[in-house]
């Protein structure tokens, strides 16, 4: 669970950094080159399978753990816990489910289109590239999509708030000096990743 989660975080960081290229380069060239690289490089192709494996593992383990956890308390309390805990940690299965639902739509919108659909092509230098960038920009001109993505990404942020440090704790990495730092990193990752991703549809919608 923890290892898969950490791997997914690393994926999100790569994904975000590529997407942000769209905002810094109006010609979309950088983004398209990167997307092309990601779509064709053999190493990345292998990792794509690993990534899907990681997602499925993370989801399956999450569901199994949750079922075990529910079974461990067959009779619920009348007054549910008011213990002082980190808020989002209690709803990982719920935020996870929301993220999964949107993920399916997201894959249809972009991934499958890029992989199996026909995209326009552009010339960069002497080579022809698929214009992945325009697909994104076209999508985010539609207001409902922007809203949907913002909501989705907020949930991603909630999920991530209890991710990095929790994974370290599960792996037994806890230290009186560094654990507070891990908490900080966790919160920062949640804000930066969710915020960074949210920026893309919002900026595109406003500027286009």
């Amino acid at each position: 669970m923890a290892l898969a989660g950490l791997f997914l975080i690393s994926f999100l960081v790569v994904h975000l950094s590529i997407n942000l290229l769209l905002l810094f380069d109006d010609s979309r060239e950088l983004f398209n080159i990167a997307a092309h690289f990601m779509g064709t490089n053999p190493v990345i192709q292998v990792f794509q399978i690993v990534l899907f494996g990681g997602i499925i593992l993370h989801i399956l383990l999450g569901i199994i753990l949750q079922i075990q956890n529910w079974l461990a308390r067959p009779t619920r309390y009348k007054v549910e816990g008011y213990s002082h805990t980190s808020f989002f940690s209690k709803f990982m299965i719920h935020t996870g489910a929301v993220i999964l639902a949107f993920l399916v739509i997201h894959l249809f919108n972009f991934f499958f289109k890029a992989k199996f659909g026909e995209l326009e092509t552009v010339m960069i230098g002497n080579d022809s590239y698929e214009d992945m960038g325009i697909l994104v920009i076209e999508k985010f001109k539609e207001f409902p999509y922007v809203i949907m993505y913002v909501v989705w990404l907020l949930f991603l942020g909630f999920h991530l708030d209890h991710a990095f440090h929790s994974a370290l704790q599960s792996l037994g990495l806890n230290h009186s000096k560094y654990t507070p730092v891990a908490f900080g990193i966790s919160r920062a990752l949640a804000i930066l990743i969710a915020g960074g991703f949210i920026l893309i549809p919002v900026v595109i919608y406003i500027t286009q």
Partner: peptide
Amino acid sequence: GNCTNTGACEAECPKEISISNIARMN
């Protein structure tokens, strides 16, 4: 059940046992 690092145990423990022990056990 399983530990999901929520920290309610530590918050409610009458002897204030730290969840750093859970990490050590992991």
